Amino acid sequence: MALPSKVYKAALQLSDVDHGVYETLQATVAQHPSETEERLVSRLLAYAIFHEAELTFTKGISATDEPDLWVKRGDDRVRLWVEVGLPEADRVIKASRHSERVALLACGRQLATWDQQQLPKLEKLANLTIVSIDPAMIARLVALLDRSIAWSVTITEGTLYLTCGAETVESPLLVKVGSR
């Protein structure tokens, strides 16, 4: 018998000063049984960092032909493809051919190795943005994770500040390719 997904309700108060975006975001996010809490937190961070109208979560890791988040046009073409984690360069290159823009929140324990092996293959993609954040921030957010998530997210001068309850954590947004 398959384990059920764990469902989280998220309310994000987003103030992206760098891009003039001020939104209250509501999302219901399912954590697949094989998905780590670090990856779930990273998907929510990507939702805030790359937010634009109509950005939605996909079926996630259970659908290998979809990104973690996307914006689709009325004709079903992908306008924005958002990946989270450390995908193979071939997957990102393919996504860049089939969507107007590709964004990647690069995070995970093997980030330094991934940077050395995959980043050189991706640097010439004109429609790609790669951002990474401090892994300690993700770890701290995992420790604070609750089924009902209430975050206040502020992005200003290339730094992400996130308040959860009485605690505020921060990380620079390290842009590796492209621009946010």
Rank of each mutant, 00 (worst) to 15 (best):
A112H: 10
L125Y: 07
R91W: 00
G74T: 15
W114L: 10
Q110T: 13
L104K: 14
V92R: 09
E123I: 13
T129R: 12
D115H: 10
I93R: 13
S99Y: 00
A89F: 09
R101T: 11
A126P: 11
D90P: 03
E88D: 15
V78H: 00
G108M: 12
A126I: 13
V84E: 04
E83L: 15
R79E: 03
L86W: 11
E100D: 09
D115C: 12
K121T: 05
G74Y: 12
L86E: 11
E123C: 11
L86S: 08
K72Q: 10
V92M: 08
K72A: 03
L105N: 08
W70H: 14
R79V: 02
G108W: 11
L104Q: 05
R109S: 08
L111D: 01
K124N: 15
E123H: 05
L122M: 07
Q117W: 08
L125A: 11
Q116N: 06
R101H: 10
A95F: 00
Q117C: 10
L105H: 08
H98F: 07
R77S: 05
E83D: 15
V78M: 00
R77G: 00
R79F: 05
L111T: 12
V84W: 07
R109V: 14
S99A: 02
K94Y: 04
G85E: 04
L69I: 12
L128I: 14
V78R: 00
G85K: 06
V82R: 07
E83A: 15
H98P: 02
T129D: 03
V92E: 05
E123F: 01
C107T: 15
G74K: 12
L86R: 07
D90A: 09
S96C: 07
P120D: 02
K94R: 14
D90F: 03
L69C: 10
A103N: 13
P87N: 10
L86T: 15
L104P: 05
L80G: 13
V71M: 03
A112N: 11
R97G: 11
A95L: 04
I93E: 09
S96F: 01
R109F: 10
L80P: 14
L80F: 07
L128P: 15
P87S: 13
V82Q: 04
